[in-house]
Simulated scan of single mutants.
Amino acid sequence: MSTIKDVAKLAGVAPSTVSRVIADSPKISKRTKERVKEIMDELGYYPNVHARNLVNKETNVIGVIMPSASYAPFQNPFFPEVLRGITAQANKDKYGLYLSTGQTEEGIMEEVKEMVYSRRVDGIILLYSTTSDPIIPFLLREKFPFVVIGRPPEDYADVVSYVNNDNVKAAKMLTEYVLLLKHERIGFIGGRKDAYVTLDHKHGYEQALKTAGIDINPMYFVYHDEVFEGGEQAVIELMAQATPPTALVVADDLMALGVLRMLTSMGYRVPEDISVVSFNNVLMSELSAPPLTTMDIFIYELGFQAATLVREQIASPPLDAQARIVGHKLVRRSSTSRRITKESTL
């Protein structure tokens, strides 16, 4: 096995120069760097990054905290897509990722503590944000670099760095689109009731109805933690109303697939009998039957920006909290249509 001394001898430089090349020191000329890297390739030499990181007191690893297994994160295409964005930035900066494996919220909290106290990672990306999650106050107390994908709690809004969409505005736009199709009885199917994204979607939905002068019907609100199955159950609850909705605003595309399947099994036609809109614009939304009208929230970009921001937090502590807002775009497909009324057929 080749050593750093072997590389230095063949390159005609000191071992310390090889170390500086590995560290990408600006004090080493481009020509020398190229020569040393050629020799490293010839000898098949790979630097001991772990040992170097121990000296630098860095791991060059970022922790990624997923929701607990009870919320089946890998069943929802949102999480693989946001991880794709994080991974793209990780590959660019040549650092590793450590994914949490906690099965419960208590287990995740213990895993985060172990990451921080053992310095297993240099920083953390939290892939969700809820009203009562203990991780954010813990990381703040420990002054540990971290970034949230989503909106942090109001009490910490000025001290937590995060990447998010304007979910209130996005939900308002989506609901307004349904209103323009002449629907007035619009149901809302939310996810976790304690998730800030659910609260913001509900707020935007309510804003749109109030602006249109439509009374908010509390019987049209349904929440489910389960995603696909939750969509199915929500349809049963809403369509059992004496006056069921003619359109549904759904938390995300996977839940909307459950909605579509249950509506079909109950004999409803989409969009002729009822229109359905959702959020995220994952691949399955385009392949569903019918293809879903959805709000693209640019999930990949959320992950990429979060990974960039946490690296900045690590490189320059203490760094003031930053907020980065990723845009959104309405993608119109075949799950929506203008509501047919007696007046419109005259």
Rank of each mutant, 00 (worst) to 15 (best):
T3D: 10
I4R: 04
D6I: 06
V7L: 08
K9E: 15
A11M: 14
S16D: 03
T17K: 09
V18M: 03
S19Q: 08
I22N: 07
A23N: 15
D24F: 01
I28G: 00
R31Q: 11
R31S: 09
E34S: 03
G44R: 11
Y45M: 00
Y46M: 12
Y46Q: 14
P47Y: 03
P47I: 07
N48Q: 11
N48S: 13
H50C: 01
N53W: 12
G63M: 02
P67R: 02
P67E: 09
P67H: 08
S68C: 12
P73Q: 06
P77T: 01
G85S: 10
I86C: 11
A88V: 15
N91F: 15
K92D: 12
Y95F: 11
L99I: 01
L99Q: 04
I108F: 11
E110G: 04
E110A: 05
K113F: 14
E114S: 13
E114T: 14
V116R: 13
Y117D: 05
S118V: 03
S118F: 05
R120V: 04
L126H: 05
Y128T: 06
Y128S: 06
S129N: 09
T131N: 01
P134F: 00
I136V: 15
P137N: 11
L140N: 13
R141H: 14
R141V: 08
F146I: 06
V147R: 05
V148A: 06
E154L: 14
A157P: 01
D158S: 15
V159D: 15
Y162T: 07
N164H: 14
N165P: 05
N167E: 11
K169I: 07
K172R: 08
M173T: 14
Y177D: 13
L180C: 03
L181G: 07
F188L: 01
G191V: 04
K193V: 08
K202G: 00
Y205M: 02
E206F: 00
E206I: 04
T211L: 02
I216C: 02
N217P: 03
M219E: 15
V222F: 01
Y223F: 02
Y223A: 05
H224A: 15
D225G: 01
D225Q: 04
D225W: 06
E226K: 08
G230E: 00
Q233P: 00
Q233Y: 00
V235F: 00
I236V: 10
P244R: 04
A251K: 00
A251G: 05
D253W: 01
T264K: 03
M266C: 10
M266R: 13
G267H: 02
Y268M: 09
V270S: 03
P271H: 08
S275I: 09
M284F: 12
M284H: 06
S285E: 00
L287W: 08
L287Q: 08
P291K: 06
L292K: 05
D296H: 10
I299R: 00
I299Q: 07
A306T: 06
A307Y: 01
E312G: 10
L319V: 05
R324L: 15
G327N: 10
V331R: 05
R333E: 00
S335A: 04
T336C: 14
T336P: 12
S337M: 14
